[in-house]
Design a protein around this nucleic acid. Structure first.
Lengths: 156, 156
DNA sequence: TATTGTTATACTCTATAACTATA
DNA sequence: TATAGTTATAGAGTATAACAATA
C-alpha cells in the first residue's frame, strides 16, 4: 500500500504513540471510576495541597469555571475537599481527602503497570536512551514536569 | 516543588510530547485553513484514491455519519470530489481534486517544517536511535502506518 | 473597585438511530 | 432483505459572560 521503505516521520510516530499511550492510560483509569482529567487533578493536588481553584486552573491551562465542574465531581465522590481559606474567605483551599489519597495510591500503581506494558519490549539500554532523548525534547519545549497536557480527556 | 531527582516516567513523557507535537502541528495546519482531521483525510485519500466513505470511516476508526460531515466540508472547499461508483451506485468514490493535491503538497511542506522544529536539538545519531525505538513500539501495538490516530482534533 | 468562585448559557464535536436510494 | 450514504437529534465537554460574596 504505502511506502514501507521510507522510515516514518518522527513527529508522526511521536503523535501516534503519545495518543496510543493516552488512550491506554484512560482505559486503565476508568477501572478506578475516574476519567483522565480526574487523575491529573488528583496528581496535582497531591503535590500541591491547599491550592486555590484559580491556581489549579492556571496550572491546567483552563478556566476557573471548568475547575468548578472538575472539583464538584471529585468532591461529590469524596476524593477532594474544599475548605474556605481563613486568611481570605474568597479562596477555596483544595486538598485530597483520605479516600483521595488512597485513590492516588491506586493511580500510582496504574501508572507503574502502564509503564511496564508500554515499554515491555525495550531493554534497559533502550529505555535509558529513550528517557534521555525525550527528556531533552520536553526541556526544549518547556513542558511542565508536573502537569499533564491532557487534563481533559487524555492520559496520565 | 516536585522530585527533580526521579527521572520522569517514559509513558508520561511520551504522552506529553505526543500531545505537544499534535498541538503544534494543528497550529501549522490552521495556516492552510484546515483542521487536523482535514489533513488526515487528505493524506489518506491521496494514498488511496477512490475509497468509499465506509472504507474511510473504517480506516479512521469512526462512523459513516461522521465521514459525511468531514467530506461535506472538504468538498465544499473544492479539495475533494465525490463521484458515484458506476459499478454500484450506492457508493461514493472519493478523490482529491487538483486543488486538493496542491493543498496536499503544502501539507507535506508543513510536515517537513514541523519535523525540523521538533527535533532540531537532536544529532543524527539520536534521531536514528529515536526512530528505531519508536518504530519498534509502534509495531508492538500494531499502530497503522498510514492512519493518524487523531483524525479528529489532533495533528499530522 | 478588584478578585474568587459560581451559574447560566451557548457552541463544538461526535455518536446513535431513523431514513433514502440502490442492490 | 441488505448495504451505502444521509439527516435528525441528543449528549458530552468546554468556554464566555454575567453574577454573588468577599476583600
Amino acid at each position: 500500500m504505502t511506502d514501507a521503505s521510507t522510515p516514518r516521520r518522527l513527529g508522526f510516530l511521536l503523535t501516534q504513540l503519545g495518543t496510543f499511550a493516552s488512550a491506554r492510560f484512560a482505559e486503565r483509569v476508568r477501572d478506578l471510576g475516574l476519567v483522565p482529567s480526574d487523575a491529573g487533578v488528583l496528581r496535582l493536588l497531591s503535590r500541591n495541597p491547599g491550592m486555590s481553584q484559580r491556581d489549579l486552573a492556571g496550572r491546567l491551562g483552563t478556566v476557573p469555571s471548568r475547575v468548578v465542574v472538575l472539583i464538584d465531581s471529585l468532591e461529590g465522590r469524596g476524593l477532594v475537599a474544599r475548605t474556605r481559606s481563613p486568611s481570605d474567605r474568597r479562596n477555596h483551599e483544595l486538598r485530597l481527602t483520605d479516600a483521595g489519597r488512597t485513590t492516588m495510591g491506586a493511580l500510582r500503581g496504574i501508572a507503574e503497570a502502564h509503564e511496564h506494558e508500554l515499554f515491555a519490549s525495550l531493554d534497559d539500554e533502550e529505555r535509558r536512551l529513550l528517557q534521555g532523548i525525550l527528556a531533552k525534547l520536553a526541556a526544549d519545549f518547556g513542558l511542565d514536569t508536573e502537569v499533564h497536557p491532557g487534563y481533559s480527556e487524555r492520559g496520565q
